[in-house]
Amino acid sequence: MRKKSVLERVRLLGKAGIDTLAALGRSTLFLLRALFGRSELGGGMQLLVRQLYSVGVMSLAIIVVSGMFIGMVLALQGYNILSKYGSDQAVGQMVALTLLRELGPVVTALLFAGRAGSALTAEIGNMKSTEQLSSLEMIGVDPLKYIIAPRLWAGFISMPLLAMIFSVVGIWGGAMVAVDWLGVYEGSFWSNMQGSVTFTSDVLNGVIKSVVFAFVVTWIAVFQGYDCEPTSEGIGRATTRTVVYASLAVLGLDFILTALMFGDF
């Protein structure tokens, strides 16, 4: 490699900035067109069902298993600390609040990005590289409507449901460990939880979080697939980008949302 002059570096930096800006604009247009462009295509419902299956139902196993383990670990750790202060019955409240406010939406989004997001990117990228998207266009079908839109909607719908299932399974796992194993009195476990968890500020805020995450993760995944370089390495890189970008976006947004929802200012 030759050494680059300072001017060259500045030029490259500027180019990178402009490229990023262009990608942002392109992805926004892409999203708007896919969601609000008009469609003359019938059978939209069937397409959506197919995608809900591959995006939502197929992610169910990993969500349920991880949810249960995370709930169990939370109960164990929480019990260890809380029992030192003699308030081990608060373990239910701790497990529920942690899951509903943070871990449910965030971990679901991260798992979703890894499981469904990368699959979406790879699938669409593969369609692009085998010219299926071009060929749809030539048949006179807008791939944004036929391929992209159902996948976007499937992601938007699935993730909040998955997050709620995650929380429920987690709380159940936590209850199992705390009540059956560690011997926390069952009545106080639940009543403590019910006393401190409120529907609007905890449950609904968690759902709102996961709706936002669903939007961002699915958008990134689908756009990376659609925008990737149509070669094997291109698809591989796009898949990696999906997971990295989606995870960073989820964690960053989580901070902002938490500050807005629970920050009291």
């Binding site: 085998t130 010219e131 299926q132 071009s134 266009e137 048949i139």
Partner: peptide, 23 residues
């Protein structure tokens, strides 16, 4: 326009290099 183009393409057929069948 994008819409007119899609109409126009009904009069054209393309055979792609890979065939591009929907898998």
């Amino acid at each position: 326009s994008r819409h007119e183009l899609f109409d126009m393409r009904k009069q054209m057929g393309v055979l792609f290099q890979s065939g591009a069948l929907f898998t």
